[in-house]
Nucleic acid binder design. Structure first.
Length: 628
RNA sequence: GGGCCUAUAGCUCAGCAUGGAUAGAGUGUUGGACUUCUAAUCCAAUGGCCAAGGGAUCGAAGCCCUUUGGGCCCA
């Protein structure tokens, strides 16, 4: 509850006042105030002004007067601001106690938005023919962060990674291996996924351009992939598994874990498509076109002003949308599950079991990874296709928001970074391209960041062991990368710049982590175990109150982030919380005050901050080292 | 030709969902603060016709309409 407690108290009292004045209930807001306007503010007078035909200021005065008769536990007084806002001042002695003692509980910040319902988050879903580049990382970090936020909001989250192991991109590297003689093992020191992406894929697609007759080989390979028993399919399976394994290493290193892996090849071979095709026909969601340009095709009727979408061509082959429909329905648990489950051969570093589907018999029990709701994280270039699936699933499940496409704008390369990769763009940002080899690999960015933070940490702590420095630089570089990917809104393009992204100052993860380390250091130096049995009334300095208030806003932020699937809300909160602590740190001293009681109270606050910033950073998948 | 996203400080972005108070950060530039719990920090100065035009409103960065840049998708 925390700061929410005082907001609730105010809301209830205002509702009561409305009743006493025999006014109709209205949906006014009570929110934490801007600095300088008390602790909480309501817009209620503005909303009443039309109905009462009075100006907001007079209404605020009236309400403020009425409010003084209300039962208050946390509110000290209300005040009518000349602007018309109704501002409230908290009884900080009580509110501090409430917020600080709650902040130490493990469930602090937890909100019950999900009511323990199941939800699927699908993210990553990269073709297993290359290493993850910085654009994929945005997808992965958004998905992982949203999963963490939803878990905190009492959803039962199933995280899925859809492996497109039978598409054109995989076919291309298979052509490379089988027809152009690329050795199956990478040169020493190179990860297998990097080798496949940087060398096999790029060079194979180059050859297509110079020799159009190769298109035939490519098509045949693609066709062979669909037949599980073919030699090509078995070979491809080995290759894609190796690439997948290398990709997962990258994800795990960034603190991203999954519940289950799905494979496109299995979806195709499972026969789910024909099941759902029949169902779609039954439900009248698709129609057979008898005339016009789509004659002989099965189509989904477009909404008003939109074109019909072909699902099955007149020659009987399914279009690429058709692959996504059964998977979407499977994720929502709308079909009999044709899969068995087995454990992935490697254990995830967090020891969480990673499952994968299989069409073969398995000694393991059947699993269920479906959800009442499904969130699919894919960039907004897929919006058109995703919209069709969303509306189809809405009809299927008779719930409008069962299937949600969480879209985001892509990551491009800044002109400078494109230039270092050999592309002159005339000052414009450039689209990444796996095919042209124009991308920045996630592993390389991590390595660069890590060596930079390693040097920085070593400089600060010459006495520290190499393994400790290594651990710190790992957490800082992962944090920096993750924070860069989610700190801005999903609908903003990120023009990735290698130099700027390596910054460790300002609005970065390291700033926040550093703040945590400062707090940890104070507690360590105090030589005491912070207690919550302190005199909260002693915490009266403005920076102290600001910090307590910020701590108390945690659950409100979690609610907001979960409700809107918006990771950046938590990123901003972490930053604001760190700013509040740094201001406290500069203005208020904690240790060696010669006042035992005050020191204990402040130590309690420092510890509360430390605990809260850890919890909120954890929602971003960012660790908080005690020393930096 | 149709559709989606976007435009706020020199640069990168918050704020817009739910219209009301003084439009905020970071970065950059300039100056200041380490014998004091870690300077990956803090403080100050600088910097805005909120793309343009219109509309509804007592009130618009935010809502509606039009136009123009930029990005993407489909044809």
């Amino acid at each position: 509850m925390s700061f929410k407690s005082i907001i609730d108290e105010i809301e209830n009292n205002l509702k009561k006042i409305l009743g006493d004045l025999s006014l109709a209930p209205i949906s006014f807001s009570v929110e934490p105030s801007k600095p300088g306007f008390g602790d909480a503010s309501s817009n209620i007078s503005f909303l009443l002004s039309k109905q009462l035909k009075k100006n907001p200021k007079d209404i605020a005065l009236l309400l403020s007067e009425k409010y003084s008769d209300c039962q208050s536990t946390l509110v000290l007084k209300s005040e009518a601001h000349p602007s018309g806002y109704l501002n409230f001042y908290a009884d900080w002695k009580k509110l501090s106690q409430l917020i600080l003692s709650e902040s130490f509980l493990g469930e602090f910040g937890t909100v019950d938005l999900g009511e323990n319902s199941s939800i699927v988050v699908e993210h990553t879903s990269v073709n297993p023919n290359k290493a993850l580049h910085i654009g994929h990382i945005r997808n992965i970090i958004i998905g992982d962060t949203v999963s963490r936020i939803l878990k905190k909001s009492n959803f039962k989250v199933n995280v899925l990674n859809y492996v497109d192991d039978s598409g054109l991109q995989v076919a291309d590297i298979i052509v490379g291996f089988k027809h152009f003689g690329f050795p199956q093992d990478p040169p020493t020191g190179k990860k297998f996924d990097h080798y496949c992406g940087d060398d096999v894929y790029v060079k194979t697609t180059e050859k297509y351009e110079s020799d159009p007759t190769l298109e035939e080989i490519r098509k045949n390979t693609l066709k062979d992939l669909e037949d599980a028993s073919s030699e090509t399919a078995r070979f491809a399976d080995k290759i894609t598994q190796r690439v997948l394994s290398a990709q997962l290493e990258t994800c795990w290193n960034l603190g991203v874990y999954y519940d289950c892996l799905n494979f496109e090849s299995q979806i195709i071979r499972s026969g789910l498509w024909s099941t759902i095709f029949e169902k779609l026909k039954e439900m009248g969601l698709i129609e057979f076109e008898k005339e016009g340009k789509n004659q002989g095709c099965w189509v989904i009727r477009g909404d008003e002003g939109e074109e019909d979408k072909v699902i099955v061509r007149s020659n009987g082959t399914a279009t690429y949308i058709a692959k996504d429909i059964p998977y979407a329905a499977w994720k929502l648990g709308l079909l009999n599950d044709p899969f068995n489950y087995k454990k992935y051969e490697k254990t995830q570093p967090n020891t969480q079991v990673l499952w994968q589907t299989t069409l073969e018999k398995s000694p393991e029990p059947k699993q269920n990874f479906s959800g009442n709701k499904v969130i699919t994280v894919i960039d907004s270039r897929q919006a058109r296709l995703q919209k069709i699936i969303t509306s189809l699933m809405a009809k299927f499940k008779s719930v409008s928001d069962a299937y949600i496409h969480l879209g985001y704008e892509s990551v491009t390369l800044s002109a400078e970074t494109a230039k270092t990769l050999g592309l002159e763009t005339d000052g414009k940002q450039a689209q990444m391209s796996g095919r042209k080899g124009l991308y920045v690999n996630a592993d390389s960015v991590y390595e660069l960041l890590k060596s930079k933070t390693f040097e920085e940490t070593k400089k600060r702590h010459p006495e520290m062991s190499a393994s400790d420095i290594d651990s710190i630089s790992h957490h800082v570089s992962v944090g920096t990368l993750r924070y860069e990917m989610i700190k801005q809104d999903l609908d903003k393009i990120i023009a990735f710049d290698l130099t700027k992204s390596l910054s460790l100052e300002g609005d970065t993860a390291s700033y926040i982590q550093y703040t945590h380390a400062r707090a940890a250091r104070i507690i360590e130096k105090s030589g005491k175990t912070p207690s919550i049995d302190v005199e909260f009334g002693l915490l009266g300095e403005q920076p102290e109150l600001d910090l307590i208030k910020m701590i108390g806003l945690f659950d409100i932020q979690v609610y907001d982030a979960a409700k809107n699937f918006s990771p950046k809300v938590i990123a901003r909160y972490c930053h604001d919380l760190a700013v509040a602590f740094n201001s406290f740190y500069e203005h208020v001293h904690v240790l060696d005050l010669g006042d035992e009681k005050l020191e204990s109270a402040r130590l309690c606050l420092v510890n509360s901050f430390k605990s809260t910033i850890e919890k909120s950073l954890d929602l971003l998948g960012i660790a908080a080292p005690d020393r930096m």
